[in-house]
Design a protein around this nucleic acid. Sequence first.
DNA 1: GTCTATAGAGCGATAGAC
DNA 2: GTCTATCGCTCTATAGAC
Lengths: 205, 205
Amino acid sequence: MTTELSTEEKIKRAARQVFMEKGYAGATTREIAEVAGINIALTNYYFRSKDKLFDLVYGEAFQDLFRIIISVLNSELPLRDKIGQLIDEDVDFLLKNPDLPKFVMTQGYLNNENFFGMLTAKRDAFLNSKFVVQVVQAQAQGQVRNINPIELMLTIVSNVQFFFMAKPIVSRITQMDEAQYRHFVLQHKQMVKDMLYQYLFLQPE
Amino acid sequence: MTTELSTEEKIKRAARQVFMEKGYAGATTREIAEVAGINIALTNYYFRSKDKLFDLVYGEAFQDLFRIIISVLNSELPLRDKIGQLIDEDVDFLLKNPDLPKFVMTQGYLNNENFFGMLTAKRDAFLNSKFVVQVVQAQAQGQVRNINPIELMLTIVSNVQFFFMAKPIVSRITQMDEAQYRHFVLQHKQMVKDMLYQYLFLQPE
DNA sequence: GTCTATAGAGCGATAGAC
DNA sequence: GTCTATCGCTCTATAGAC
């Protein structure tokens, strides 16, 4: 039995759902209020405006993802396992927030100063992470192919996010239902890992 | 000297630009008319409604991409070169239509019957392509790793599209300007090729 | 805190003059 | 074909009662 949520929390959850589904322009405060089971006036009472509510929802989701990723980047795992776990965590997160990539890519949101500052901070956290040290060291020892760590990270993300962003189109083309698609994505993780390992880790001759 | 465009063509180009930039919900017929240098009434005179104009723009862009891809799939190239060319053509197309993936992924467009029919036709064209025959044959001969051709194609697309979809965020994180980002994407093509070749083509022992 | 009612702006679409 | 003017609608935001 779920405990009764505060009105504020109900609005935030409704906003997350509707914004993620429709994007900023496509979402309306009316629909958010309806989903939350309250009226429009209350959304503005708690969050001042549609803009501010959007910023909040968007910022929180992003923070969550980055927090997880950076904690993996700085974990004690060896490089190979760490790459595997980055893929696992990325998939897990997106299974819970399947519309986030769409949401992220769609919004002309990047002029927002708060968001820009956050991005810069995360970039620095990445560059100073244990992960980058591990990559550079392994490359110096000739164990790992010489690729820019940022390009590597982006390649990992690329191979995961795509299947969430393109889900509507891919699941139609492949005629998979919800459960089948989920299974496909989980299985695809292993292919991505195999591909990256095979490419990255150089065989001793 | 560009020859003078017809009003119809001016509207179509303006619509392409504005829809790709803002998405369906974010775009307004007023802005399209303004970009085209005409008034709102004319957009409706030529294209009846915002919906129909959107369908047209979206459909044409999609057709262009699929036409190129399918012609490569059925070309006479050996498998390795064909995969390379799929990557090249995909990148080339997206350099000319950088907002198409965003446009595609964003729109809750997939309920449209025309579009669904088109997708199904393209899926069949893929499954019946020379490319699929080549993959299956090479797999039967143990030259290529056993992966579903659709998953392979999606992986190729995934590794290209991402850098266009995520461009605003990636170019900010990496602090690259327009020219630098273009160079990065072009260079990244080779990494994707190397990665796929390394993974797919099995070494004879 | 929560509601109803509504102001004020912007939207898509069209009527009607030229 | 092209325009101006405007209708009717929906949106965000808020005023004001409870």
